[in-house]
Simulated scan of single mutants.
Amino acid sequence: MIRAEREAAVRRLMGERPLPVPTELYQEAVRHGERLLRRGRLARRVMWVLVCVAAVVFGVWAAYAHPWADPPSRTTPPTGGW
């Protein structure tokens, strides 16, 4: 099919009256969309809760472990040579 034929076919399709959508299909699509939105909202809330819990756990660990401090030395410096 050459370009002119494709354009003519598209114009013919666009010029026709659109087919009506069955009401049960519309209602099913609305229910499906609402379900997807609820799942997405729930997933975002769960992720925010997990992020907050992780931040609190990290804060408690950091307050207890002091990861920024140098660990105590396990050996003594050499005392000879003076």
Rank of each mutant, 00 (worst) to 15 (best):
G15Q: 14
L13D: 04
V30G: 05
P72V: 00
L25G: 08
R11K: 15
E24R: 12
G33N: 14
V56M: 08
H66F: 02
P71H: 05
R45G: 02
R17Q: 10
Y26C: 08
R74L: 14
M14F: 13
V49H: 00
R17C: 02
W68C: 00
A54N: 13
V56P: 00
R41P: 01
G33Q: 12
V56R: 06
Y26I: 05
L25C: 08
A8R: 13
A55F: 03
A43V: 10
A55V: 02
L19I: 09
V60K: 00
P78G: 10
T79K: 01
M14R: 15
C52I: 06
M47E: 15
R17T: 04
V60T: 00
R41G: 05
D70I: 04
R45H: 08
W68T: 00
R41L: 15
V10I: 15
L42G: 07
E34C: 09
R17A: 02
A8S: 10
E24A: 08
Y64K: 10
W61R: 06
P72D: 01
T23S: 15
W48N: 03
T75K: 11
H32Y: 11
L25K: 13
Y26D: 08
R31N: 05
T75E: 11
E24P: 00
H66K: 05
P18C: 02
E24C: 06
R45A: 09
E16M: 03
G40Q: 10
A43D: 13
W61N: 05
P71Q: 10
A55I: 03
L37T: 15
V46Q: 13
R12Y: 07
E16R: 09
W48F: 09
